[in-house]
Design a binder for these strands. Structure first.
Length: 368
DNA sequence: AATTCGGGGGG
DNA sequence: CCCCCAGAATT
């Protein structure tokens, strides 16, 4: 596959670099040479669009401008800055990795493949991207764009969703890097895929590589890359309690939130207490039973609050939320615990929450 | 090699 | 509605 000689490789690189210098977007992380800040951008960009990342990166770098700043921050604050971006283990891994750079590498992002790859959350793509972009090390950075671009230029009909395909595309991408131009070339390949050689209806009429693209010559550009279809997400029913206490004392009304476990889906995020529904049980009974079992609380379900549907990569939530009220008063000594708290509705925004629960919080605050 | 991890934009 | 997105870790 992709048999290229040095001359063809040089021509592709030359044309892509010329196109890139003319058409590259003015992205905020292209204005810095700081390897840490470039690293942050690459982690945020994993499975995430450039337009989505821009405001997150800007706020994150403003708050955590250096490795020292991020290393010293409370994890929950880091999550708060990541809130809504998804794949929250990226944030946790990034902070773990940054702390290791502090200890092991004296606060300087390592510039070798072995060292940077040992950091948590740094896989083959991110390692190549940071090393090439920040240090101009001639290593490939194969992301979804590069799979698509190379599969079309060289008409590679291999299933790119198979892990085995990655190594072949990596060696091809590495071979194409012109001497001394790893940084710009790798970015040109991705930028080209993001703006010209796009997934559907590629802009072949504006393409600087049209004359040498094998897929275009065969009229196959729309059929590449080959990718296996994903399984549909499985659906589960979730019951959520918007539980308010009725003490009405000096602090006013408070609502119960719970922190999810440190591992698994939405790890470490706060949410209104939620449980997978028990088939055959009435929602009110089910919710009452679950809250008693988990938090030793007696509540009464007052009324239906809202329905939410949310699809994750592999899961579909069908969520029903009910307004509930705590029976009796809350002892002042148990108004907070390690993984649950009673908080004033106005302070819900201080806690990192998933997109679904953010929406519930806004409904509760009357902001919608 | 197959699953688990979020969320949103666009055809 | 489906696909895709500057993927990595776990099993």
């Amino acid at each position: 596959m992709g048999n290229v000689n040095r001359k063809e490789a040089a021509e592709i690189a030359r044309k892509l670099l010329a196109w890139y210098h003319e058409h590259k977007r003015d992205l905020p992380w292209r204005r810095t040479g700081d390897p840490y800040q470039i690293w942050v951008s690459e982690v945020m960009l994993q499975q995430t669009r450039v337009e989505t990342v821009i405001p997150y990166w800007t706020r994150f770098i403003q708050r955590f401008p250096t490795i020292e700043a991020l290393a010293a921050a409370p994890e929950e604050e880091v999550l708060k800055f990541w809130e809504g971006l998804g794949y929250y283990s990226r944030a946790r891994n990034l902070q773990t990795a940054v702390r290791e750079v502090q200890e092991r590498y004296g606060g300087r992002v390592p510039d070798t493949l072995a060292e940077i790859s040992s950091l948590s959350g740094v896989g083959p793509y991110t390692a190549g991207a940071v090393l090439s972009i920040a240090y101009n090390v001639p290593l490939p950075a194969v992301d979804g764009n590069v799979f698509r671009v190379l599969s079309r230029i060289f008409l590679i009909e291999e299933d790119v969703s198979k892990p085995a395909a990655r190594k072949k595309f990596e060696s091809l991408a590495e071979f194409l890097i012109p001497p001394g131009e790893a940084s710009d070339f790798n970015q040109s390949l991705m930028e080209f895929g993001a703006t010209i050689c796009i997934p559907k209806h590629p802009r072949c009429l504006s393409c600087p590589l049209q004359t040498l693209c094998k897929a275009y010559a065969e009229g196959m550009q729309e059929d590449l890359p080959i990718k296996a279809k994903k399984k549909p997400p499985r659906a589960i029913d979730i019951l959520t309690g918007i539980v308010r206490n009725g003490d009405g004392n000096r602090d006013g009304e408070r609502v119960l939130i719970v922190r999810r476990p440190q591992e698994g889906l939405l790890a470490g995020l706060w949410e209104f207490p939620s449980f997978e529904a028990t088939p055959g049980k009435s929602p009110a009974e089910d919710l009452q039973h679950s809250l008693r079992q988990q938090f030793a609380m007696t509540i009464q379900v007052e009324q239906h609050f809202a329905n939410m549907q949310h699809t994750f990569s592999h899961l579909h939530w069908n969520l029903q939320a009910y307004s509930c009220r705590l029976s009796g008063t809350v002892e002042t000594t148990v108004t907070a615990a390690d993984n649950w708290r009673w908080v004033p509705v106005g302070q819900l925004g201080d806690f990192p929450m998933s997109a679904v629960h953010q929406k519930l919080a806004k409904l509760l605050q009357g902001l919608v």
